[in-house]
Amino acid sequence: MPLNTRRHFLIGAASAMAMQRSLKAQSKPTTRLRFAVIGINHEHIFRMVKALRDGGGELAMIYDPYPDPTHGTQFLKENLSVKRARAEREVLNAPDIQLVVSAALPSKRAQLGIRTMRAGKDFLADKGGFLNLEDLEEARRVQAETKRIFAISYNERLLLPVSLKIDELLRAGAIGKVTHMWGYGPHGLYGHGPREPWFWLRAARGGILNDIGAHQADQFIHYLGADGARVLGSYAGNFENPDHTEFEDFGRVWFQSAGGTGESMLSYTKAKTTGFQLHLYGTEGRLEVFKSSGRISLVKPDGSRREFTVPSSTPCPWGTHLVDDILHRTETAMPQSHTFLASELAVRAHMVAVK
Rank of each mutant, 00 (worst) to 15 (best):
F250V: 12
Q256F: 08
V253D: 01
E246M: 08
G251Q: 02
S267M: 09
S267F: 02
L232Y: 10
P242K: 08
V253L: 04
G237S: 14
F255E: 05
G237F: 03
E263T: 10
N238I: 03
R252A: 13
F250L: 13
G251T: 05
D243H: 07
H244G: 01
S257F: 08
G251S: 13
L232A: 14
S257Y: 05
A236R: 11
M265S: 14
E246I: 04
W254N: 11
D243R: 12
N241P: 01
G259H: 02
R252F: 06
V231F: 01
G233C: 10
F247N: 00
W254F: 14
R230N: 13
G251A: 13
N241M: 14
W254Q: 12
E246Q: 09
T245R: 13
T261H: 14
W254E: 12
S264K: 06
T245M: 10
F255S: 01
H244C: 06
N238A: 04
V231L: 03
G260C: 08
W254A: 13
E240P: 06
G251W: 04
G233F: 07
D243Y: 02
S257G: 12
A236E: 11
T269I: 11
G237C: 11
F239M: 13
D227C: 07
E263S: 12
N238M: 07
S257D: 10
E263H: 11
F250K: 12
S234K: 00
A258C: 09
V253A: 06
F239G: 09
A258M: 12
G251F: 06
G262T: 04
Y268K: 03
E263K: 12
P242F: 07
G233H: 06
F247D: 00
G259Y: 01
T261K: 14
R230G: 09
M265V: 15
F247T: 00
E248W: 07
G259L: 01
N238S: 11
G251L: 06
A229P: 00
G233M: 06
V231N: 01
F247A: 00
H244Q: 09
L232V: 15
Y235M: 11
H244K: 07
D243V: 06
Y268A: 03
V231Q: 00
G237I: 03
G233S: 13
M265N: 11
D243I: 07
R252G: 08
W254D: 12
H244R: 02
G237L: 08
T261D: 14
D243W: 02
G260Q: 03
G251I: 02
E246R: 03
G228W: 04
P242H: 09
A229R: 02
L266S: 02
N238Y: 02
S264Q: 04
N241Y: 07
G233Y: 05
E248K: 15
R230M: 14
E246K: 04
E248P: 07
A236Y: 02
A258R: 13
G237E: 12
T261S: 14
E240L: 12
D243Q: 15
G259Q: 05
G262S: 06
L266P: 10
N238H: 07
M265I: 14
R230F: 05
G260W: 01
E248T: 15
E240T: 09
Q256H: 15
G262K: 00
R252P: 01
W254T: 12
N238K: 04
